[in-house]
Simulated scan of single mutants.
Amino acid sequence: MSLVATTRKLGISFFEYVRDRISRIGNIPSLGTIIREKSSSNPFGWSWMPE
Rank of each mutant, 00 (worst) to 15 (best):
Gly11Trp: 03
Arg36Thr: 02
Phe15Glu: 11
Thr6Val: 15
Asn42Leu: 13
Leu10Asp: 02
Phe15Cys: 06
Pro29Ser: 06
Thr7Lys: 06
Ala5Lys: 14
Gly32Thr: 11
Ile35Tyr: 02
Phe15Pro: 00
Trp46Lys: 13
Trp46Ser: 13
Phe14His: 15
Ser2Lys: 04
Arg24Ser: 14
Arg8Tyr: 12
Glu37Ala: 08
Met1Asp: 11
Arg21His: 06
Arg21Tyr: 08
Ala5Gln: 13
Thr33Cys: 04
Pro43Trp: 05
Gly32Arg: 03
Ser39Pro: 03
Gly26Glu: 05
Tyr17Gln: 11
Val18Ile: 15
Ile28Ala: 03
Trp46Thr: 14
Ile34Met: 08
Ile35Cys: 03
Trp46Leu: 10
Ser41Met: 04
Ile25Leu: 13
Arg21Pro: 04
Met49His: 09
Arg36Leu: 00
Lys38Ala: 02
Phe14Pro: 00
Arg36Gly: 05
Val18Ala: 12
Glu37Asp: 09
Thr33Lys: 08
Phe15Tyr: 12
Asp20Trp: 06
Met1Lys: 08
Leu3Arg: 13
Leu31Gly: 04
Gly32Val: 11
Pro50Val: 12
Ser13Leu: 07
Gly26His: 11
Thr33His: 09
Met49Cys: 11
Arg8Ile: 09
Gly32Tyr: 02
Ser23His: 13
Leu10Arg: 05
Trp48Met: 01
Glu51Asp: 07
Phe14Tyr: 15
Thr6Met: 09
Thr6Ile: 15
Gly11Arg: 00
Lys9Tyr: 04
Met1Asn: 07
Ser47Lys: 14
Ser47Glu: 06
Arg19Asn: 12
Ser30Ile: 02
Ile22Tyr: 12
Asn27Glu: 07
Asp20Cys: 03
Ile28Asp: 05
Glu16Ser: 15
Val4Cys: 03
Asp20Glu: 07
Trp46Phe: 12
Asn27Ser: 10
Tyr17Met: 12
Ile28Gln: 03
Glu16Lys: 15
Ile28Val: 13
Ile25Gly: 02
Trp46Gln: 08
Glu51Gln: 10
Tyr17Asp: 09
Asp20Ser: 10
Arg24Trp: 06
Val4Lys: 10
Arg36Asn: 07
Thr6Trp: 01
Asn27Asp: 07
Ile22Asp: 08
Ile25Phe: 08
Phe44Thr: 03
Lys38Ser: 01
Glu16Pro: 01
Gly45Lys: 09
Leu31Pro: 01
Glu37Tyr: 00
Leu3Glu: 00
Val4Asn: 05
Val4Gly: 00
Asn27Thr: 13
Gly26Ser: 07
Lys38Gln: 08
Asp20His: 06
Met49Asp: 08
Ser47Val: 12
Arg24Leu: 08
Leu3Thr: 02
Arg21Thr: 11
Ser23Asp: 13
Ala5Gly: 10
Ser2Ala: 14
Ile35Met: 03
Arg24Lys: 15
Ser41Asp: 04
Arg8Asn: 10
Arg19Val: 04
Glu37Arg: 00
Ser23Ala: 14
Gly45Pro: 03
Phe15Ser: 14
Pro29Arg: 12
Arg24Gly: 10
Lys9His: 00
Phe14Ile: 05
Phe44Tyr: 05
Leu31Arg: 04
Ser39Ala: 12
Ile34Asp: 01
